[in-house]
Design a protein around this nucleic acid. Structure first.
Lengths: 224, 224
DNA sequence: CTTCACCGTCAAGGATGCGTTAAACCTTCT
DNA sequence: AGAAGGTTTAACGCATCCTTGACGGTGAAG
């Protein structure tokens, strides 16, 4: 999911962090000193950096400052020093958070989540395309041959459910439940009416749909 | 410059923070409990919130969660509790930072700077233009054919929300919540009245709007 | 071949939502 | 107190959308 660059000169801590982070679904790369850290951050920009201040080659705040010259990636600082001055220096150099050793792994993970939550706030625009039409889930728009296609609210909801499960089969109950509500599980009429509507607006050949497919007796399927 | 909302039930600490923060150039407003904090945050949105978890009326994490329902203002949590669980709960509820009492004022100020630095970072395009009118978000002005257009405060707020999300669909609830407040989610009348007003002032052909579009049953969309 | 189940299509009604206008209400300034 | 500008409320015509039912086609089973 998210890529984390861990910078620390203690191989044991590095290994422990790598294992823990990977167990929580992060991609992890590591560096043992400031130079390689900057290099790696440039070659494969991570989503967040965990940086130990006590590095062998460079001062920690110097690393942050250099990083900030060309990157705005969130930086979480680890340090054995509890002094107020150290914290202020690191934070003012451009760090986003600062925790002191020894620290709880729970807390580290929670702070990591907080940083990632904020930096990844502008949700990545989910756009799904086929040969004949394009669905922009973020902007809630559908276009065909450059032209915007007008969809009614119900049409959109139905298309959205299908597009969010590409290639997967969506059962009739699932569709009815998500679009009309759990109480409409028997009204398969709706599905036929609205599927016809969607195909007329999106499929070049209504009689032979290529992306909005029917699985008789079961449900429907969207193929990109 | 930046507005800080400080929430704490200890009047002494509140006073100390107010003085310190003001001495460093912040505008300070205060609240002694969660309810008034949420109210103040809504009426005069601050740039950052400093929140004590030990409030008399509401659980601290509940305050954060409610706040996050309609605001993404950075939240720095103060707490007397050093436990890892408390930190994780607060951070996962939506807090951005967490420091424990007693804390150094230097550190608090540094963390405050770090939060403000990041949250004030994304300065979206200050000026957005269409064929028929231009919106200057920074100067809070709208012009059409060189002439300034006079907008009432409510008209402006509504236009601003739409323009800040170009091409994206803004739901009715989103608009009502951001312009009138979260409690007005049902008053779609307002939207119709003010959208008509905006179109009369900005659209050449009111009957066929080209930039302020309606998505029936869902919301509105601004197209540059 | 007939029957049945299921799907796609169509059209008409009724319900909902939108745009528009105008008047009542509120605050602020003169 | 009166005036002016802004906000809220209510009402109406109109367009759009949802629902419903009927009809025909297709394929599998009897």
């Amino acid at each position: 999911m998210s890529a984390v660059l861990v910078v620390d000169d203690d191989p044991h801590l590095l290994r422990a962090l790598r294992i823990t982070l990977q167990a929580h679904g992060y991609e992890v790369s590591t560096a043992a000193d400031g130079r390689t850290a900057l290099l790696k951050a440039m070659q494969a920009p991570p989503s967040v950096v965990i940086l130990d201040l006590g590095l062998p080659d460079l001062d920690g705040t110097a690393v942050i400052r250099e990083l900030r010259g060309w990157s705005s990636v969130p930086v979480l600082v680890l340090s054995a020093r509890h002094g107020s001055d150290d914290k202020v220096q690191a934070l003012d150099a451009g760090a986003d958070d600062y925790i002191t050793k020894p620290f709880g792994l729970d807390e580290l993970l929670a702070r990591l989540r907080a940083l990632l939550r904020r930096s990844s706030e502008p949700e990545p625009e989910a756009v799904v395309s086929t040969e004949s039409f394009t669905v922009d889930l973020g902007k809630r728009r559908v276009s065909r041959e450059g032209q915007d296609v007008r969809l009614t609210p119900t049409e959109w909801k139905m298309l959205e459910v299908l597009v969010r499960n590409p290639e997967k089969l969506v059962t009739q109950q699932q569709l009815l439940s998500e679009v009309w509500g759990p109480a409409y599980a028997k009204e398969t009429n709706y599905l036929r009416v609205y599927m016809a509507q969607l195909r007329r607006k999106l499929e070049p050949d209504t009689a032979n749909p290529r992306h909005l497919l029917t699985e008789a007796g079961i449900g429907y399927r969207f193929m990109p």
